[in-house]
């Protein structure tokens, strides 16, 4: 059991107690060793702050809502279909789309860690990574949904997807009434991050 040791033996325990200083200490050491270029870290942060985020997933959903053939392709091979829009990469190598209907509501979680479709939704929000969400989504999904303000009809079936492997799930929310004839851009603007995790429904803004 090479990874197990007494608590005080863990290497991380020699780092500074303030987490911001802890990062700085590690970064400084790795830069000194020639293993990290700080500009590389800036580029990674910029990627997930500004370039890859839920706007990608929203474009995919809007296109699927607008084009039944695209929706059919997305449901049968989400990885190849997302790639058509240029969405592929780390933590999104094997994608599956699951569609909400009148009969079924889908909800995505990772009980073991924080698996999430990065190329489509970016970095997960704090609540997705929280103990409360991870522990409860599989056991009491309807109570969790109520905490997001989502009340489901009792006869609707809830499917909770626990991301235990490298398959990453995207929920395709139901297209709301009153959006007939909308452009893909207009549709994408109302598709929230949470609706693609399954903790929100898409509504037409009042």
């Amino acid at each position: 059991m090479p990874h197990d040791s007494l608590d005080h033996d863990h290497a991380h325990s020699v780092l500074p107690s303030d987490p911001a200083l802890r990062v700085k200490a590690l970064e400084t050491l790795l830069v000194q060793k020639g293993l990290i270029d700080p500009k590389t870290l800036d580029a990674i942060i910029d990627t997930y702050e500004n370039k890859i985020g839920p706007q990608n997933g929203a474009r995919l959903v809007a296109k699927a809502w607008s084009d039944p053939d695209f929706m059919a392709k997305l449901m049968s091979d989400a990885t190849a279909t997302a790639l058509e829009l240029g969405f592929y990469g780390r933590q999104g190598e094997h994608l599956v789309a699951v569609q909400n209907t009148e009969a079924v509501h889908n909800l995505v979680v990772c009980t073991l860690c924080s698996c999430y479709p990065w190329p489509l939704l970016g970095i997960p929000p704090s609540w997705y990574k929280s103990d409360a969400y991870r522990s409860r989504a599989v056991r009491e999904p309807r109570k969790v949904l109520a905490e997001f303000g989502v009340q489901l009809n009792e006869d609707k079936e809830v499917r909770v997807w626990d991301s235990t492997a490298e398959i990453r799930y995207l929920v395709i929310p139901q297209r709301p009434l009153g959006t007939e004839g909308w452009s893909e851009d207009a549709l994408a603007s109302i598709v929230s991050r949470d609706s693609m995790i399954g903790t929100a429904l898409v509504e037409v803004p009042q």
Binding site: P19, A20, V23, K24, L26, E27, L30, L35, I36, D37, T40, L41, D42, I44, I45, Y48, E49, G53, P54, R90, G122, I123, P125, S126, W127, S130, A132, Y133, R136, V144, E147, F148, G149, S192, R193, D194, T199, A200
Partner: peptide, 26 residues
């Protein structure tokens, strides 16, 4: 669960982004 309704920044603290980037780069 405490929802953020899409309001939370990607990295709530500067060091969060740094920790993620350091882990990926390593």
């Amino acid at each position: 669960v405490t929802p953020d309704f899409g309001q939370e920044p990607v990295f709530k603290e500067e060091w969060h982004g740094r920790a993620l980037a350091l882990t990926l780069a390593s």
